[in-house]
Each structure stands twice: as structure tokens, then as C-alpha cells.
Design a protein around this nucleic acid. Sequence first.
DNA 1: CCTTCCGCAGATATCGTTGTCATAGTCTGC
DNA 2: GCAGACTATGACAACGATATCTGCGGAAGG
Lengths: 333, 333
Amino acid sequence: MRDVAREAGVALKTVSRVVNNETGVSPQTVERVTEVIHRLGFRRNDMASKLRAGRSAASIGLIIEDLGNPFYTTIARGIETVTYPREQFLVTASSEESAERERAILLELCQRRVNGMIIVPTGLDHSFLQHEIDLGLEVVFLDRPGAGISADTVLLDNLAGAMSATEHLLSLGHRRIAVLGHDETIWTMRERHAGYRAALARAEVAYDESLIMLGPLTPDEAQRATAELLDGANPPTAFFACNNRMTVGVLSELRHRQESIDVAGFDPIETATLFSHPVTLVTYDAAELGRRAAHLLVERLEGRRTPQQVVVPTTLVTYGQSAGSNAKRRRRA
Amino acid sequence: MRDVAREAGVALKTVSRVVNNETGVSPQTVERVTEVIHRLGFRRNDMASKLRAGRSAASIGLIIEDLGNPFYTTIARGIETVTYPREQFLVTASSEESAERERAILLELCQRRVNGMIIVPTGLDHSFLQHEIDLGLEVVFLDRPGAGISADTVLLDNLAGAMSATEHLLSLGHRRIAVLGHDETIWTMRERHAGYRAALARAEVAYDESLIMLGPLTPDEAQRATAELLDGANPPTAFFACNNRMTVGVLSELRHRQESIDVAGFDPIETATLFSHPVTLVTYDAAELGRRAAHLLVERLEGRRTPQQVVVPTTLVTYGQSAGSNAKRRRRA
DNA sequence: CCTTCCGCAGATATCGTTGTCATAGTCTGC
DNA sequence: GCAGACTATGACAACGATATCTGCGGAAGG
């Protein structure tokens, strides 16, 4: 900027005024300065600019479990549709389900003075962010509630979704429904498991511990778990998979065995219409989750103070023929 | 930081030394300052720090076509595995296939002084970045070559991949192979189309214009195009879909008609093993694309100057039974 | 006892920009 | 012809950190 000022024969401040389209500069001066700016290829240093302004560079931290999971990327896409028009950049990082890594990333994002963060929380305590929040940081939790601080939250209706999936299987006559999922250290899994139990209870079907396979499972492990269950003494007659990866695992094993068993799963799968095996999925608008979170964050950045909670509904969708019906059926969860 | 200094009764520079673990501070002073830092919850402002250092905040710009496409998110995941250990944050944005939007984003990223950018180029001329490159910006093009500047590039072997897919269909006896894809304004599509033609030429099969459906197609449009082709006077006996979305479109229509026709497609699809219809895919390690690009960028940031080009190979994988074979077959492309 | 050197800590300038205030010049109206 | 208002521009400090240089006190060496 100094170079521009010298070259155009004006003061720094005048260049600043031109760069920021401020009033009170004569058209001739504007033109002369603009010409020099183009000639020298000058571009303002946003970091210095924001430093002076005491504000952070317009950017939003997004910390999710895994950048590679389509569920999260659809969310990221939804967030971007809201933040891009507001000239906010998205700074992304994966927590890898590690509370420690999550904490390290969050603190680093604070150092960068992002003005807001959208967090899919892994850790169980986020009170260490309180100080930053007092200093103006805005936080929105997404998909799972955070703990230790009061902040906006966007959640799925996990309980109702899991209930509707389980009820769907029950209505087909199943009484032994296996469950595959992550263990209950993850909030969404607790909710979905609770939904499953609630549906059983309402139908007065006994809860059988031996049908439940939890733990951090890869799709391959889910496939093996499915095999074990099917080969057991008293095998299940249907499966409820608690997330998209579990669903893929279960279906892989069924395809491998060329067996057909009713399967319900949580999370939408884009290509489910092409599957050979019928499946009923608890679907929802993942991009909407992102948009809602981004809207809440934007509102907070614009001054709202009262914490809000948003719950996004789920929809049960059946792909392929199941129990004699050939139609693709939809039901509100 | 001033508060910390005052509270601890030391000079600013001493606090700075403690924060940066510099030597030359007595243990007692370190302890006293550290205590005050924790008590006040002080956290260094990275923007100011980097401003003084003349360097940018450790961050890498990533601009891709669409944050929501699983292809790109797998890439992002690969990039992150390389950049996270180096404490570089990823600033992401979607170009939406708009050259203008891409340009705007790139220039904004320059203003933020990212120290490197990984670009999936949409625009046809990136020479406007030359000035920033002269000033120390490092650029790597990913998936498609950039134009107007010399920079590192990571590409897929599109030509060989498309050839191997086409040859596979030819080897099954097909002579009328339809092609669905984006139009040739996109480099990868030109290459894949060229691969198709090369395979035909080698097999001395005539190229038939009427079998080619190009244009920006959504999966739904691809499905309709498939229907049109099949309902035409002289329908194709096989399909080559130039990307994952086209593949889904073709397969949707075939499933809808309950017809079975040999299909090959470019891009891996995670759930292809579960499809009811057999399909042969040109697969590759998308995360590896990201890792290679990130490695090139890191090398450049560490001083390498000679531009490099990396080509990632593809592999042909057949899912489901095709032309009488029941096995899942693999061939090097 | 004096010089030299070293370990520790502070003063000050600086990064690139913008907010505040000052100033010089022009214009208006009586 | 001059007060008062207004316009265009500039000087300077400040944002929050770090690099450089300087200073001070004590230990080692002669």
C-alpha cells in the first residue's frame, strides 16, 4: 500500500479510502490511485485490516468427525450456501472422534480468531470455550448437543426416527430385531438405541441383549457382526442399522449370502434406489441441518443472544420391495 | 498480552518469549508468566503474530467444484491427512463450476494470505494468479490442469481409464456403446471422450455421433437420456458413463425398465457392491489424489521450485456378474 | 580489582492497515 | 472582504504480536 501511495503521490490514508470505497476522495484522485493499484497488482492484506478493526477475518470454523463421510460433506455444502453470500470462509477440520484432537483444533481456531464455529462435538465438555465466548466467539453445535456451555444446537430427531424404523419392522411381524451401531459414548447412538427400545416397549416385545452389537464398527466389522448374528443359535429375523456404514455392512453380508431379510437403517444413502436388497431408511435433509446451523450462527453474529435449539425431522423411506409390497413408500417419522 | 505482562510484572517481550517457548527466560519467570496466562485465559492472536512475521496464517485454500460431491470430499480427506500434522488449516470453498466465482474466491483467498492453494480449476485462465505467485503464493492444480501459469499438477489417467472401460465393453462384443457425460468444456470429459474414441479406433469400430449425449447433466437428466437412447431407432447395446452421476442415472433407468445391459462408468462408487445391476467402474484412489496434491504443495512451501506433474493410475473393477462371469474381476488400467 | 562475557529482561521499531483528528483550500452569503 | 461551512487530503497512533538491540548484574579469569 505504501508503494501505491508513493507511486500515486498521495498519502496512505487516501489509498485506504479508495480501496474501501470511502467517500470524500475526488474522482481524479480515485482514478489515479485505482490505476496504480491495477498496475502494481496491489491487494489489501485482510489480516492486517481485520487486526486493526479488532475483528477476526470473516471466517467460520467447521469441525466435524470426518471430512470424508458423505453425511458431513452434505452438511458442509448446506453451510456454505448460507455463509458464502455473507463472504464468510469456511475453515474445516476433522476431529476423528478424538476429544483431544477436537480440543486442540478448537483452541487453534480460537487463536485464528474465527468469528464463529460450527461443531459436531466429540468431547464431553466444552466449557473451556466459555472464555472465548465471553470474548465474542459464537458457537453452534450440530448433530449432537455440546456440554458445559450454553449454545445454539441443531439436532436430528433421532429418537422418533429410530422408533419409526423399529415400528416399521415390528409392523412387518418381526419380534427379533438385531441392532448394529456405535457404542453409547456417542449421543446420537444413545438416542437411536433408546428409540429402538421405546418402540419395543410400546409393542410389548422383550428387549434381548444378545441381539445388540455395539462398539466402534467399520462397515467390514458390521458385516462380520451380521454373519455372527445370523449364524447364532437364535438368529434375528430383521436388522436395524444405526448409521449409514452399519447399513452397508449388513447389506453386504446379506448379499454375500444371497439371503433376504428385512433391514432398516438410519441415515440416507444416495444410491439406495439401486440396491439389490430392499432397505428402509430413516432419511432427512442433511443439507438442511447445515443450513439451519449456519443460519443460527449468522443470527448470533448479528446480535441475537438467547440460545435456540432446532430439531430437524426424519422421514422413513422404503427402497425396493419389502414384505410383498412393490411400491416405494413414504411415511412421516 | 499487555494485561499478562502487567499482571506478571514483566515486559511484553518476556511474555512473548514464554508463549513461544523461547530460551533465555529464567524458570521462575516462566512459571509466573504461565500462571498469569492460565489465570487470564490468554491466547495469542495468530493473525497479529503472522502479520509481524510477514507470513500468512498457516492455512491452505482448497477450491473445488462442489463440496457435496463424495469425489471431492474424499480428496479433501486425503489432503487433510497431510496438512493437519503440519498445522495447516484447510480453507474450503466451492466454485460451482463457475469461472467467475472461482476467480472471486481465489482472489479473496489471496487477500487472506493463505500460503498455498489447491485448485480444481474451472476457469480457463489462471494467469491472474501470477502476480501472487511471484509474491510467494504456491499453487497446485488437482484433477484438471490449470492454464496460464506454471504450477504443480495432479491428474488422473483419464485417457487410459476411459480406454480400458471402453475396451472392456468391446471385448464383451459390443459395437454400439453409448456415452453419457458433461460437455467438453471440462478437461476431464475431453480426455475420457478421447479415450473412448481411441479404443473404438483401435478396434476399428466406427464412431457414431448419435450415441453421444453430452451437456451438463444431472443424474435425472442422464436417466432420461438413457431412456431416449434405448427407445431410439438403433439403440446402443452398452453404456459408458463418464462420471459417477451419469452412472447412477444410467443404472436408475435400467433398473426402472428391469432391463440388463452392460454398463461401464468412470469414478468409483462406494456402494457399487450392493447394486442389483452389474457395473464395471474405472476406479482410483481419490484420497491418494488429495495426498499427492498436498505433498506437492508442502514440498513447494519448503522450497522446491521445479514444477511437477503427477498422474494417478486407474483400475477397472467389475461389480456383479457381467456377460456370464460371476466373479469380481480386477484389471490394471 | 578490573575486564570480559553471559544470562536475563526491557525498550523500541515494525508488520499493513484504518480511525481520529488536523489542515489547507474552496465556496457561500451577507 | 470575511466568518462559517464544507471538501479533499494528510499525519499519526493504534491493532497485537515479534525482531533487534541495549542494559544490567553477576561470575569467571587474569
